[in-house]
Design a protein around this nucleic acid. Sequence first.
RNA 1: CGGGGCGUAGCGCAGCCUGGUAGCGCAUCUGCUUUGGGAGCAGAGGGUCGCAGGUUCAAAUCCUGCCGCCCCGACCA
Length: 448
Amino acid sequence: MRLSKFFMPVLRDDPKEAEIVSHRLMLRCGMIRQETGGIYSWLPLGFRVLTKIMDIVREEQARAGGLEMLMPTIQPASLWRESGRYDDYGKEMLRITDRRDNELLYGPTNEEMITSIVKSSVQSYKDLPLNLYHIQWKFRDEIRPRFGVMRGREFLMKDGYSFDLTEEAGREAYNRMFVSYLRTFAAMGLKAIPMRAETGPIGGNESHEFLILAETGESGVFFDKAFLEKDWSGVDIDYDDAGAVAGVVKEFTSLYAATEDIHDPAAFEREVPEDRRVSGRGIEVGQIFFFGTKYSKPMGCAVQGPDGKEVYLQSGSYGIGVSRLVAGIIEASHDEAGIIWPQPVAPFDLGLINLRQGDAATDGACEKLYEELSNAGLDVLYDDRSDRAGEKFTRMDLIGLPWQVVIGPRGVKSGMAEVKNRATGEKTDVPFDTLTGLMLDKCTEVYA
RNA sequence: CGGGGCGUAGCGCAGCCUGGUAGCGCAUCUGCUUUGGGAGCAGAGGGUCGCAGGUUCAAAUCCUGCCGCCCCGACCA
């Protein structure tokens, strides 16, 4: 992508409404634009990151047996009356009336709808297990939306639902999602610590929240230092091996980790040696629930078992805050100059900077490299604008692509490009003819 | 919902107290000179001063009502 043809309205000054760093940087980079309180447009740069995150979610869901589908944003109120949540949900639910006076709502989550779908289409235990998910916009009319897309009213969420015949099978489904979440966040370059959680309005008997550490996080967290020492990328798993899956879950849940809501100081002190106790702040990026028959029973979602008897399905639900992750990743990965994208979610693999746009030799070298890098399959943002060098450097640092390839008249003379690692700031001179190979290696390295 | 703050050009702000018909920086456009970490000079364009009433010869400025946004708290992916 040529910057001259891209839409990336970068702001030179900090917008006054943005307090926290991710919100500020997202606005400054031209990733998002607020339309009204807690509701945002995603501009091309931001949308690219959102898409990268969705790609990773889809890949890991597929691996763990999740089937993607798409349910609507608007739901009939009748569905929610069946589960009894229409009245429980309160003002957070946006209620709408259509022209025929039908009561509708903008979905804050989809347990009812998915249960209804499964109920109407699944009659036999032979059709189980099922694990269905979608990535769809949700609306929760928060009392106080804030911090940009971190706590928006409209937000993009991956929500998945499992249906099993027995409680044991349901718990195995929960475990598979637990492990897949570890993998999903790790694939984005994050360490998301699973913490025992309250079930809230979703209900149920078991739940874990996944939190990434960030100073600006909304939740206070307490956990065993061992989490920081773990190698998340090493969670390679055979999802068909229930014992192995349960082993990973046990490994992660046997260590103390809790948010302030349910933190038990006595247990913390008992279970974790003093020098290993860590407290800090975290951002919740995912939550999983196992709630058994909480929805299947009131909604009559049952199948015939092998013995011919009707059995209510055992369910869980599994959410990932996709749009929140964009902000969460920035909170976890930035410096004074701007964002530092982990490679897997970066909007582009690298930025190519032409320091002297209009100079025939420099333009020629840049065009050639741009073509070469692109043909190699890399996603390149080519800064071909005629701005001054300083502005280009500052802007590229701000948007935080993992690698910068800098080409100016000096380098063209010596046949060298300067390659800068955004995270470390390290700069290396690389001959033009080996550049593409090197960048291809760098950009496709498994994220560690 | 309680408490605090803010709405003036694309962005950041001054002007308001003490009414006299709108200004600064950056950005934008044109030209020339520059060009390896947010250039210089010269010129130009751009604003129903959040909205609606009221007071006044005259309102960005004073009064009333409304709307929107941000921050702190109780709730949440």
